[in-house]
């Protein structure tokens, strides 16, 4: 497996406050990596640095071997993201949002791609509906459709199923798993739902106070540290 994302000794300081410290990890092709940690651990800071919207104080980020700091546009062509705190503009329709972002990402055969995603995420009947009037679950599906537009090699998902009902969340997880296993994609996934993480992720990284504390297979990691479940391990790491 080759790496789609390689993060080396990444750090971010705001004045004297250290948000992320000396973090190194990778995401391989066809791999789903969970980035876990309590609130304020540095997960979103790390994702923002990978997305090029936050400049690291130190370290490097390579997406498909392209340095984000040196060739931001080229690196981000391989990337896309969906985050619960970044809804798409509510004053554009579902179709308009996908068209605008499709053009930005330079998607070939955009019309067909939009039609396919509308079908895949069951958004066809909302095609001409303004995104702002969709339910939170429908908005999440739209964000995920946007995140898939360019068939990203690196997909960043920040709590992607936070506002979905269990059935829809299950379907979305299955879709992302299929995408990761069949395409050229690697996924970095943050979630506070440990059952979801155990179900979806091939590997997890525990982040606390800006540092990676643990790393491993979510199915075996709890036992390796004397805990019954991933949630127990999460709580223990968060309290350390």
């Amino acid at each position: 497996m080759t790496n789609v994302l390689a993060v080396e000794r990444l750090g971010k300081k705001y004045g004297e406050m250290v948000a992320v410290q000396n973090v190194s990890f990778h995401v391989a092709r066809n791999e789903i990596v969970g980035l876990l940690g309590p609130n304020g651990a540095g997960k979103t800071t790390t994702i923002n640095m990978i997305l090029g919207v936050l400049e690291p104080t130190s370290g490097s980020i390579l997406i498909e071997g392209v340095d984000v700091a040196q060739q931001r546009s080229k690196a981000l062509e391989y990337t896309n993201f969906a985050a619960v705190y970044a809804p798409l503009p509510g004053n554009l329709s579902v179709y308009q949002n996908l068209r605008v972002f499709g053009l930005i990402y330079g998607v070939a055969g955009l019309q067909k791609r939009i039609d396919a995603l509308l079908e895949q995420f069951e958004l066809e009947r909302f095609r001409d509906t303004k995104a702002g009037v969709l339910s939170s679950g429908e908005q999440t599906r739209l964000c995920l459709a946007k995140a898939m537009l360019n068939d990203p090699h690196l997909l960043l998902l920040d709590e992607p199923t936070a506002s979905l009902d269990p059935a829809t969340a299950h379907e979305i997880r299955a879709k992302i798993r299929r995408m990761a296993s069949h395409g050229a994609c690697g996924v970095l996934w943050t979630s506070h739902n440990m059952y979801e993480v155990e179900d979806v992720c091939d590997r997890v990284l525990f982040l606390s106070r800006g540092k990676i504390m643990l790393e491993g297979d979510p199915k075996t990691l709890p036992q390796a540290h004397g805990k019954e479940t991933l949630e127990e391990l999460f709580i223990a790491v968060a309290r350390e």
Binding site: V53, L76, E77, L88, P89, G90, N91, I104, Y105, G106
Partner: peptide
């Protein structure tokens, strides 16, 4: 301002757009 009002900065600036 359309990007300000719709809180779209993260979506816009996390793309390849220069």
């Amino acid at each position: 301002m359309e990007d300000v009002w719709s809180r779209n900065f993260l979506n816009i600036f996390a793309t390849p757009l220069s």
